[in-house]
């Protein structure tokens, strides 16, 4: 059921996000406003921002289930934690890739160590280290405990990163959501499509996560029998 709803929802979002015309002065309901300096490239935000958002959501989910695992040592919590981390890695990679492609056309280079790029790079490194650690431990309980502890330590040092990065370099990254100075204007249509895309991607993540958890639970049961 969820699968069918998600399919229809995401199809509509993709068609609207890519298909609706962009004009300077939107008159009709179906028109997007042109954002200065971004123009047609602004369409990437319908896909890039949700993936970046989900890579953070997955990171937090993984840590929360890690804490739960440490508290009551249930294998299913570890499965939930590692499944979230796996999806987080996927979405983190997608956000990095879409961001790099956008940067090529807006900034003229795929990678220039913008603060946003640096912090997502560190997030990728943490995910990579997390899986390297998991594959290096064979005993299941030990692997779950060590992975949970590592994800918690990584999560508590991340805020430091968010704090120092802006001090070191000014970012050129546009901020459609935290739009403080009102530099980027979205009209109602654009905002609705954007929020629908965010909701659709989050639903997709939830569905994939449930599926992963079920598959891995079956896998672990097969090992025991």
């Amino acid at each position: 059921m969820l699968k069918a709803v998600l399919f229809v929802w995401m199809t509509v979002v993709v068609i609207l996000a890519l298909g609706l015309p962009m004009v300077n002065q939107p008159q009709a309901w179906y028109q997007f406003p042109t954002i200065p300096a971004l123009e047609e490239k602004a369409r990437i935000m319908f896909f890039h921002v949700p993936t970046a958002w989900l890579s953070v959501v997955a990171f937090v989910t993984s840590m929360v289930y890690g804490i739960r695992y440490l508290r009551n040592k249930q294998t299913e919590d570890d499965i939930k934690s590692s499944a979230a981390a796996g999806l987080g890695f996927l979405f983190c990679f997608l956000a990095t890739a879409t961001g790099a492609i956008w940067a090529k056309f807006s900034w003229g280079t795929y990678w220039n160590w913008d603060p946003r790029q640096t912090s997502i790079f560190v997030l990728l490194l943490i995910y990579g280290a997390y899986f390297a650690l998991r594959s290096a431990v064979e005993v299941e309980e030990k692997r779950a405990t060590l992975a949970a502890v590592y994800s918690i330590i990584a999560a508590i040092t991340m805020p430091f990163f968010m704090f120092i990065m802006p001090r070191m370099l000014a970012s050129l990254h546009p901020e459609p959501i935290l739009n403080v100075q009102g530099k980027i204007q979205m009209n109602a249509t654009m905002l609705i499509v954007f929020v629908s895309s965010l909701a659709g991607f989050t639903g997709l993540y939830y569905w994939m996560w449930k599926l992963q958890v079920r598959a891995q639970t079956l896998e672990s049961k097969r090992h025991f029998s």
């Binding site: 560190v122 490194l125 943490i126 990579g128 280290a129 390297a132 650690l133 290096a136 590592y150 330590i153 990584a154 040092t157 430091f160 990163f161 120092i164």
Partner: peptide, 13 residues
């Protein structure tokens, strides 16, 4: 594994 795990944690420092 040691530098791999430590690097993201130590990078802010």
């Amino acid at each position: 594994l040691y530098p791999v795990l430590s690097f993201p944690i130590l990078l802010p420092l």
